[in-house]
């Protein structure tokens, strides 16, 4: 186990360095810079700004300085927001996004997996048709449509939930629903198909032939085998959802970090682009590592040390 973790840690570092390099190159390949605006700044001012943010340094020096800063967990100052560091931007936005994200992931798991199981057990009967119909809608309807529909129905017409911002616990309900619509539906479908496959296996027949009650057949024997594909999907899902959604946070006017993904690029806010990308990649890599660890627990055939 220890050797596995050390090896994984090294490969994670390499991945992060590659991500930094690619993002750095791509970022500088797009025309314009952080201080290019429609209204041209006086040359002297622009020069001064470039000088202050070390943009006049050769690229290789900028790159090395940046990597060294990252190694000290310093993502640099934001070019767009006066006096703000990227660390602070993420620190301000992430808690909100993460709160929404955790709730969405919980909802996805607590509803998606049971629905998938019910669907598989009642294959080709009405509960299955109902769940699969809803799941198809959830997968196909984009989240901005879900979000605006939810606002229209529950906030505007019925006025049971607030339309925007975060004031109390009710404010979370609509964004969480909009955020988890896709993943919830996807997990239901995934659980259903995986469960159906497992229930048709010979070893399930063996368990039934032992006289084991059906609930144990399902939850002890079938689910543990059927859950692997779901675990695979949930890892990256957590990284994606917890770092916020541009669309949903925009629609509900939530101060999360989702907007930075899009806005930093439009603004050529170099340090924020880099910072956000690194944050997301690191998060994703850690989640994938966790997925692998969970694999080893769920399925003894998967050996991490080899």
């Amino acid at each position: 186990m220890g050797r596995f973790l050390i090896r994984r840690f090294i490969s994670m570092l390499i991945t992060i360095i590659l991500v930094i390099t690619f993002t750095f190159v791509l970022m500088h390949a797009i025309p314009g810079g952080p201080f290019t605006a429609e209204k041209k700044l006086p040359v002297a001012v622009e020069e001064a700004l470039n000088e202050r943010y070390h943009l006049n340094d050769p690229y290789w020096k900028q790159y090395i300085d940046y990597v060294l800063d990252v190694a000290r967990f310093d993502l640099g100052p934001s070019f767009q927001y006066e006096g703000q560091t990227v660390n602070k931007l993420i620190g301000d936005g992430f808690p909100t996004s993460a709160k929404l994200g955790i709730l969405s992931v919980l909802l996805t798991l607590c509803i998606g997996i049971p629905f998938g199981i019910i669907s598989a057990l009642k294959q080709n009967k009405w509960p299955d048709y109902t769940v699969m119909f809803l799941a198809t809608l959830g997968v196909t309807i984009p989240n901005f449509v879900i979000a605006t529909t939810l606002i229209y129905v529950f906030a505007v017409k019925l006025s049971v939930f607030p339309t925007f911002g975060i004031k109390n616990w009710q404010s979370f309900i609509l964004p969480v629903l909009a955020l988890s619509g896709y993943s919830l539906s996807f997990i239901s479908r995934l659980t259903r198909s995986s469960m159906l496959e497992v229930l048709g296996q010979d070893y399930i027949r063996t368990v039934r032939a032992k006289g084991i009650p059906e609930y144990k057949v399902i939850f002890k024997h079938a689910l543990r085998n059927a859950i692997l594909p779901v675990v695979t999907y949930v890892g990256p899902l957590i990284a994606a959802i917890l770092t916020g959604s541009f669309v949903v946070e925009r629609i509900f006017a939530l101060p999360g970090m989702g907007r930075h993904f899009v806005q930093s690029i439009t603004n050529r806010d170099y340090t924020t682009i880099m910072g956000i990308t690194i944050f997301y990649s690191a998060f994703l890599i850690i989640m994938i590592l966790l997925v692998d660890l969970v694999y080893g627990i769920v399925d003894p055939r998967i050996k991490l040390d080899k």
Binding site: Y203, I204, R205, T206, A209, I212, R224, P300
Partner: peptide, 23 residues
Amino acid sequence: MLNIRGNEIAMIFQDPMTSLNPV
């Protein structure tokens, strides 16, 4: 039947490779 299966009537299946739960 749950009390009969595995207790009074037991069964061995064809394919031992797939008849045991791998986990």
